[in-house]
Amino acid sequence: MSTLLPPPKEIAMMPVDWVEERSGAISFGKFMLFRNVPKDISWLQTLGSALITVFILQSTTGILLAMYYQPDPDTAWSTIQWITNDATLGWLVRGMHKWGSSIMVVLLFLHMGRTFLFGAYKYPREMTWITGAIIFILVMGMSFTGYLLVFDERAYWATIVGVNINGTAPILGPALSYILMVGPEISTYTLSRFYSLHMLVLPSAIGGLIFLHMLLVVRLGVTSPPWSRMQPTEDDV
């Protein structure tokens, strides 16, 4: 019998080999992990990965919140109240989503500041910067659509001010306000529209752009600091 069976190590590797043969996922993973990055990158280049962590955190807590939240003017506030006070660890999930959003905006500023000071947006990384800048604007859109959902006084009036800001734009302004609020004032439809933007449209757009952003980072490589001493001499060329 023993002659018919391959050695145990080979049996264990069979599913891995099966996946690798069909998708190349294993060699891709190996490439991702063991590709070289410039020698002098360090703590300053960790903000991007921290942002991905926060994005995953926001998605996870957001999915959990969406399981209990009802986007309806009559019940929205009560469901928030219930999540915060009664649901098991609901305060933690909602609190982490709330504070995660603030931390995400702070990290975005720091990440962008680092990129700016390093001149990391220069040739050939212009597209990486542009995708990042659009992510930044979309995250501000997440913040704006997010705080109406609590449907407390602050949420309601701050949203009116925000929508009125859009409304001052020439020509398109009033139409934009109308589209955002689905009518002349905040109603059930406004709440479901903001909810849909907040949990479907904007997160998918941000997720897609993060993927593009990462693709460009891997393709072009991580930037070394501008003070890097790792310069090729004549002998290396």
């Binding site: 063991f34 410039p38 931390i103």
Partner: peptide, 27 residues
């Protein structure tokens, strides 16, 4: 710079993990 660089794992991954943990702890 790439030729004389260091592999992403474990060098950069180590720094990234520490900072991500700090950020989650902060939140």
């Amino acid at each position: 710079q790439k030729r004389h660089g260091k592999p992403f794992f474990p060098n950069a991954v180590f720094h990234d993990t520490i900072v991500s943990l700090i950020v989650v702890a902060l939140i």
